[in-house]
Write a protein that binds this DNA or RNA. Structure first.
Ligand code: MG
Ligand code: MG
Lengths: 609, 609
DNA sequence: CGTATGTTTATAAACAGCATA
DNA sequence: CCTATGCTGTTTATAAACATA
């Protein structure tokens, strides 16, 4: 039981380069020996402006083709259709076409990042992921799969790379079998045999040893449930339908996973408030829905879209973090124990880039003048953060209304938005909030903090994006050092933001003042998750029976603006603000709504107006 | 790994008689062979009006003395002080004196329920548990332990009884050791050795084999954290203090538990919204507090108080449920697999009675006339529930404001209050709520449902009890059949409470109408937990720096009444309404506030006014 | 009764931030 | 100042107990 079941890695955490096969990295090297490519230098995987083809991490017989903006879509489709005939091991392959990025493999799970699947090609960029259809009309946002054949070379390459993981599956079987030895031989008849606490079937175990796409998908249960529910126009699903959808789209659960995965699905449905159970009119059918305020209507297709900017200097990705944060014991530990780590059940690859559904673009030429900055933003309180923010490239600061956003980095993309809190919250009873995120989002002040986008332009993904924008030149050092997106709490070490425990005092001697009421009340939020899930208002009698969060009207505020939280939340795939107020990587700049950069938090949280 | 770590049983679930030693109960007997004593007949454990002495389930050298109302406290104290000299194995013993109940062992964890610890004695009843002090002044609510010696006979009796569990500890050690065999011998160097994923120390393992009170306490982590935090006047604690408090009060975690229990503590602190982290003024210290609205200020002492009515017919406790619910596979399973079940790590004993902090009394002579019932309550909608409620004894119906309360039974006490929902919620989009509890508490209507207490009288425990009361004769059949407290959702099969998905429509064609807005918004509650935790308002600038939930003012409503949720919630030890709207066992009738029985839900949830 | 569904708790673990040695 | 480590806090995964339909 030392090898108790391990959870797949938390998504959207620090990105670690996937340990290739060097099972023993030098421990004395703080940066690790894996980063061979110099930052900024084009690595072996960097094929800028080239089409990238990689296997879908979970869908069998499916490949994802990332088409840079400069490529010609038509020719790519023709090429795919032509080359697809070559190899068809198990029937027609499907292609999912993505655009907007450089196609660097970092957009994919780490297990695939090293496969150098880039293929030359050229096509037109389009905004949303597109699954290639048999009759490619080139239309936007068609999600029907295509019956073409995969590219041989790329596929085989992927398979080999995947073998490293699949070998683990084989090992895992042995490992699991060893775990089943009860020892002691005490009472064998006691097992309840719930049919959910069993190992996968033997033939399934066999299947798991093959390359049938049964790798565990890199999505959390919560994410997959959202994918499933949002795949239906009604945006509701029965439990059984959720099971089926997940099995259909992630064969891992059908073929490899133990039956307990359904227990986990149910557990997630119950645990997370964002999932709400409804009952049909006759009361006989239970449907699971997503709270509309919390639903960003994420779909699997959206998630597949890599958010990469084509202007990215190639191969400045994996090693950046290591060099900037030399001391990273976890990484070194993982490095040294690759083989043993892989002996475990297939973990989620350590990557952050495929769960970023924010489809906002950054125009490098667009800079937001700091003159439009509200007085409160990023002046006094952000001074201490200047050192942290000077290294990276284009940065955008976001001033949260309430508590400072957490430190989170994800998405190693060339262009980033750093969400920067500008004002520490006023804490209850004169107490200061700790800096470990979550807990206690202080109510907003009159002066609304704003999201600051120094040199970026946003547009919303597939939904209407309509947030007011302000601008800030900020310190835009285009250097490639530490391109990771990073957000830090303004941990407010200066005492002038901490009030005494006296009654709700509003001492505005600082930039912002907050209502001191700390405890959870309806307009307040004790946790970022709550803030998120309560961000918008919606009554069931509106036009859309089940709108997404961005489609909800901001209560009291200008109702025309959609909340940025949608985009902010999309990348996290959960409803926790501690994962929401993170750096955002922008890419794939499109031409819509280039001038809306002032995001009022009161629109995101209408209750806090 | 079949024997993966099992969670201790969920508290406050169906009470099962502890499988004594008959390892093979007749499976063909639906009622089980354990119930030898006829219901209502005085069993071997029933010593009405006698002092009961039992070991504290977790505190070493501590015994709990349950003193019936009819006993003389002074003489009991004298007796304890005198007899305490006799045996002192490990130093002075402490006594915790409890009152208000019959002292039946059912008030204790099942492992102790069968020990027949009752001792004759006489003393005066007092309201709160009292730890006997060296200089017994007999004052109320003194919690300082006493330096006296335990009663020899009772103690030894307990020890023997405890051996059944402690033998399990010994077995568990072997079992754990067997689990430690990694098998496969794959990679031994991979283990991270977090110091929290290790087995308890060897000497601790040895200790666990002795009778040093290292049985696992029957409280959940959430409960113990509340105990800890509420033990301090400031009602806040650092993590380390919580650790220490728990270790001091439950030596199991100091001596037996694996280091991972601290991980679980932290996990619970983070997971449950009721625990809020604050930071000291200098920002250096983090304190954990309990959201005041959710804090019932439960303490370990309160929890130890058995809620037993002295007028209870003796030994009508354990077997009742079995006879009334013949088909109970879990019980039979546990019966048949006693030895094997006990091989596992010490589970929480299956009992419900020691987590009921509701210190309300029922006077059998007190009946609430139904004339005082508000019109909305229990008329039309409760008609379908009549069949369910006719069998038991004294019942009280509670009309929830929002969603129907869950079916829950607990506390096998002679007198019960059945919380009965009277109106099904109006569901969004014309959907009907399923009846598996949780999810969707519809907003309240103008006509407030009330708690109905047909023949009971309440008083609040140690805190001010001030809920308005209404009365209802109800169907009070004092028969002893199915005396378990049971609450059932009014599963609302009648369609007349289901509104179409149109905008918030309030069709009052039934008893109660609800706002149709189903999704979580600040004034709404998507889950019972939320309703609970948001039940009262409090701003940090009030008189009490950290009031309990009952001490909070109801926002907008009559602020003089305290919420019944305190009592309702106390028994569950968590903030989930699905465990709150349950049947309540009343006992230990006291003389305060006998006439307040109309509980307005708007007082409980001021936001729903 | 057996199964599917739903809720809750326990436990392990990954990982982040911070403090401190 | 750097670094290694431990503590604290958040989140996800998994198993299980138990309930309800
Ligand atoms: Mg849910
Ligand atoms: Mg918490």
């Amino acid at each position: 039981m030392r090898q108790s079941p391990r959870r797949p890695l938390i998504l959207k955490r620090r990105k670690l380069p996937f340990p290739k096969s060097e099972s023993e990295a030098p421990r004395d090297e703080p940066d690790g020996a894996r980063c061979k490519a110099a930052p900024g230098a084009p690595g072996e995987q960097g094929f800028p402006d080239a089409v990238r083809i990689m296997d879908h991490p979970s869908m069998p017989d499916t490949q994802v083709v990332v088409i840079p903006k400069t490529a010609d879509l038509k020719s790519v489709i023709d090429t795919l259709s032509a080359k697809g005939k070559e190899c068809s091991p198990k029937g027609p392959y499907k292609f999912i076409l993505l655009s907007g990025g450089s196609g660097s493999p970092e957009d994919w799970p780490s297990s695939l990042c090293l496969s150098s699947l880039g293929e030359d090609g050229n096509g037109r960029a389009f905004g949303n992921p597109l699954i290639l259809k048999p009759k490619p009309e080139g239309g936007d946002r068609t999600n029907c799969p295509v019956d073409t054949k995969p590219l041989t070379a790329a596929t085989s390459l992927n398979k080999e790379q995947d073998c490293s993981l699949l070998d683990d599956s084989l090992t895992n079987i042995q490992w699991l079998g060893g775990m089943c030895s009860d020892g002691l031989g005490s009472d064998a008849g006691r097992k309840v045999s719930n049919k959910e606490n069993q190992e996968p079937h033997a033939h399934r175990l066999q299947l798991s040893q093959h390359l049938d796409g049964a790798q565990r998908p890199p999505y959390s249960y919560m994410a997959m449930i959202q994918f499933a529910i949002n795949s239906k126009p009604e945006r509701r699903m029965t439990l059984k339908e959720i099971y089926t959808w997940i099995e259909d789209h992630f064969p891992y659960f059908r073929d490899v996973a133990k039956p307990g995965w359904k227990n986990s699905i149910r557990h997630n449905l119950s645990l997370h408030d964002m999932f709400i159970r409804e009952t049909s009119q006759d009361g006989k059918i239970s449907f699971w829905t997503i709270r509309p305020e919390a639903n960003r209507c994420l779909t699997l297709d959206q998630v597949y879209k890599p958010v990469v900017d084509s202007s990215t200097p190639p191969s400045t990705h994996v090693c950046e973090q290591q060099q900037l944060k030399p001391a990273f014991p976890q990484f070194k530990k993982a490095t040294a124990s690759v083989s043993s780590e892989r002996k475990m059940k297939p973990l989620l690859p350590r990557t952050d880039s495929y769960l970023v559904p924010i489809q906002l673009s950054i125009s490098p030429s667009l800079f937001l003048p700091s003159a439009q900055l509200p007085l409160a933003a990023s002046q006094q309180n952000c001074s201490s953060l200047a050192a942290d923010f000077q290294g990276g490239g284009k940065r955008v600061r976001i001033a949260p209304k309430c508590a400072p956003p957490p430190v989170e980095e994800f998405k190693e993309e060339p262009l980033y938005v750093t969400l920067t809190p500008v004002a520490p919250p006023q804490h209850p009873q004169g107490e200061v909030r700790g800096s470990r995120r979550k807990q206690y989002l202080a109510p907003p002040s009159r002066e609304e903090p704003v999201l600051l986008f120094p040199d970026s332009t946003f547009f919303d993904s597939g939904l209407t994006s309509d947030f007011s924008a302000s601008q800030d030149t900020g310190s835009e050092s285009p250097g490639r050092v530490d391109q990771r997106a990073t957000t830090r709490w303004t941990s407010a070490p200066s005492a002038h933001h901490r009030g005494p425990p006296s009654p709700p005092l509003h001492h505005n001697h600082a930039t912002l003042s907050f209502s001191a009421t700390p405890f959870r009340e309806p307009p307040l939020f004790s946790s970022p998750r709550e803030l998120l899930t309560s961000s918008t208002r919606w009554s069931p009698g509106l036009d859309h029976p089940r709108p997404c969060s961005g489609e909800l009207q901001a209560g009291g505020a200008a109702p025309t603006n959609r909340s940025l939280t949608e985009g902010l939340v999309l990348d996290t795939m959960n409803d926790s603000l501690s994962k929401i107020l993170v750096d955002i990587s922008f890419s794939g700049l499109e031409d819509e709504e280039l001038d809306v950069c002032n995001i009022s938090w009161s629109h995101l949280i209408p209750e806090l107006k």
